[in-house]
Structure formats: structure tokens, C-alpha cells
């Protein structure tokens, strides 16, 4: 963990809307080591996608990164100019989106799009670029890549399209890939195939991954570390097996309890009451306290992410410590 690929410190991304300031990301910190997979988990509106977009510099107006540092090999990405960022993006940091059609241009053939990506960052001949595209397509498990290069995006199935998007992200052997719910829209057997490919790639190429998802089961099998987000903040982080087996924060605890396979068949699921609060005018203190069964008056005061046991942090003053002690 000494040379971290990415270190995010107290990241703050706010959206300045007409209705007020939405603090979509409000003080997020985490570290991703070389070749490690970080699972960034949260429900809709928790700020996990905006965190990903902030790292790669794709936050649109009225949003802005207003504070914190994004250290990529020690270099603060938040301070880079648009041109410097463009040099990094797609080259050393890549992103995979939920919908592959966000990556792919529907009116261009796959070869046009892929070769363009190669030539944008490296000086190679057209033929060499083509060769590299072919190899990368083969690497992500697309059969007969030579012929498939000549196809248009609509001629691929959903799973194949996502593979093409992954191949494009891999073209420059990036040191960091940010994957935003890339398998959510896919069928389980196809999801299994993609996860297997990604796992293989992370091991073989030493690429670090940030895997953004709402599905705890996906990160359980894939990630090394996990950071759970709620209302724009990381509420808990730590090694995957520790967090999932012995969750400290009541929100993580409730989230894991809501997963059907964790419950006895036919019994009511352990549910979290209420719903996610609006990020507009979020009161100070713990954002989860209105839904939490452990909340007390002290929870209304601001709470920092604290190291509770070795390597594990939670933003809570009433954590489930009994799980760790046991």
C-alpha cells in the first residue's frame, strides 16, 4: 500500500442548482493500491457515480470539484488543466460506463472508433493500431475479432457491446480503470463472463480498479477493499471480507441484512425503514440517523470517519463493535 495508484483526500463535489447547493460528494477519502480492486458501494443518490466522474474530470455544470485532493501517483488531478487532463484520460485513466452506448458512437464502425483512440495517445502506424485493437478485442473474449472490427455497435449484443467498451478502456493499458455499474444491465450469465474477464485482467496487467455498484454480491467476489457511501460520504471502509462479515456502521449492517439470500426463506427481510434523504439542505451530523435504530441525540453533531479497528474506518459513534469483538 506504500505506492498507491490513487489517493482521494476529502473530495468535495457540489452542484450549484437553482434550488440550492447539492453536496453530492462531501468529504470522500479512499486509497486504491496498485493492482487492487476497490468496490465503491451505495444506493442511488449516494454520490458514488459523481465520485467516479470527479476523479476522471467529467463533472458537468452546474457541478464543480470544490475541495480536496485527487492524488494519482502523487499528482493532484483536481489542479490539472483541461488539456493535461485530456492527456491522462483514456491513456492512463479510463472509464467504463453502465451503458456501453455512452462510450460507443452508433454511426461509426468499431475499428474507426478504436483506432482513433489508439492514435489519440500514441504515435503508431495505422496498421499497428489496428493490430493492437484486434489483440485487445481478443483479450476481452470477443470471437473472431478481425471480422468484428468491421461491425457497427448495433450489430453487437448488449454483453458484447460492454466487452467492446471494456476493450476500448484497456487499449492503452491504463493504470486505473473506473467502472460505473458496468454489469448492471446485463444478464447473470453474461455478467459472470464479464466479471471473470475483468478479474483476469486485473491480475495479469496490474491495473487498479474502482468498481462502482449498488450490488454488494458483485463486489463480494471481485473487490479487495470496499467503501460504502451514504448521502455523499463514505460511512465505512475496509477489506471486503471484514466489512461484509462484520459490518460496523448501522447502514452497512442494514444493507447487508436486506439482501434476500442473507435471510431465512419466507421470513420477512430485515429492512431499513424510510428512504435516502434529499441532499439539498442535509442537516449536520450523521445523515443516516433518521433511519437508524441506534441513533441518539449526539448523532446530530458532525461525525468524522474514525479508525475503529486496524484498517477499518466507520463514520459512526454507535458502531456494531460487538461483531468485531466476537
Amino acid at each position: 500500500m506504500s505506492v498507491a495508484t490513487l489517493e482521494v483526500r476529502n473530495l468535495q463535489t457540489h452542484f450549484f442548482t437553482r434550488a440550492g447547493v447539492v453536496k453530492a460528494v462531501d468529504g470522500v477519502s479512499f486509497t486504491v493500491g496498485r493492482g487492487k480492486v476497490l468496490g465503491l458501494v451505495g444506493e442511488s443518490g449516494s454520490g458514488k457515480t459523481v465520485t467516479g466522474f470527479s476523479i476522471i474530470g467529467l463533472v458537468d455544470e452546474p457541478g464543480r470539484v470544490v475541495g480536496g485532493e485527487i492524488l494519482f501517483h502523487g499528482q493532484n488531478l483536481a489542479r490539472l488543466s483541461e488539456e493535461e487532463m485530456r492527456q491522462l484520460r483514456g491513456n492512463r485513466i479510463a472509464m467504463i460506463f453502465q451503458d456501453p452506448m455512452m462510450t460507443l458512437n452508433p454511426v461509426l464502425r468499431i475499428d474507426t472508433q478504436m483506432i482513433e483512440t489508439v492514435l489519440a495517445h500514441t504515435k503508431v502506424s495505422h496498421e499497428e493500431a489496428r493490430q493492437r485493437c484486434r489483440d485487445t478485442l481478443g483479450m476481452v473474449g470477443i470471437p473472431s475479432p478481425e471480422e468484428r472490427l468491421k461491425s457497427y455497435p448495433h450489430q453487437f449484443s448488449g454483453g458484447m457491446r460492454q466487452r467492446v467498451a471494456i476493450a476500448i478502456a484497456l487499449l492503452h493499458r491504463p493504470e486505473l480503470i473506473i467502472a460505473d455499474e458496468p454489469t448492471t444491465a446485463l444478464d447473470v450469465t453474461i455478467q459472470g463472463q464479464i466479471l471473470a474477464e475483468v478479474q483476469k485482467l486485473a491480475i495479469n496487467t496490474g491495473t487498479s480498479l474502482i468498481w462502482i455498484t449498488h450490488d454488494l454480491s458483485v463486489v463480494a467476489g471481485l473487490a479487495d477493499d470496499i467503501a460504502v457511501m451514504y448521502a455523499g460520504r463514505v460511512v465505512e471502509d475496509g477489506p471486503v471480507s471484514e466489512v461484509l462479515d462484520k459490518p460496523l456502521h448501522p447502514y452497512t449492517h442494514g444493507l447487508i441484512g436486506s439482501v434476500p439470500s442473507r435471510n431465512k426463506r419466507g421470513e420477512p427481510l430485515r429492512q431499513i425503514p424510510g428512504m435516502t434523504p434529499s441532499l439539498l439542505k442535509l442537516p449536520p451530523g450523521c445523515a443516516f440517523r433518521s433511519r437508524c435504530d441506534r441513533a441518539t441525540a449526539e448523532c446530530a453533531a458532525p461525525i468524522e470517519l474514525m479508525e475503529l479497528t486496524l484498517g477499518r474506518h466507520a463514520r459512526c459513534i454507535h458502531p456494531h463493535m460487538e461483531a468485531v469483538a466476537a
Partner: peptide, 11 residues
């Protein structure tokens, strides 16, 4: 099917 009980496994 990904399972929450599974850890670092081959899919």
C-alpha cells in the same frame, strides 16, 4: 449468480 458470501473467487 454473484453471492455475498463469496470472496475473491473465480467467477
Amino acid at each position: 449468480v454473484p453471492r455475498i458470501e463469496a470472496r475473491k473467487r473465480a467467477f
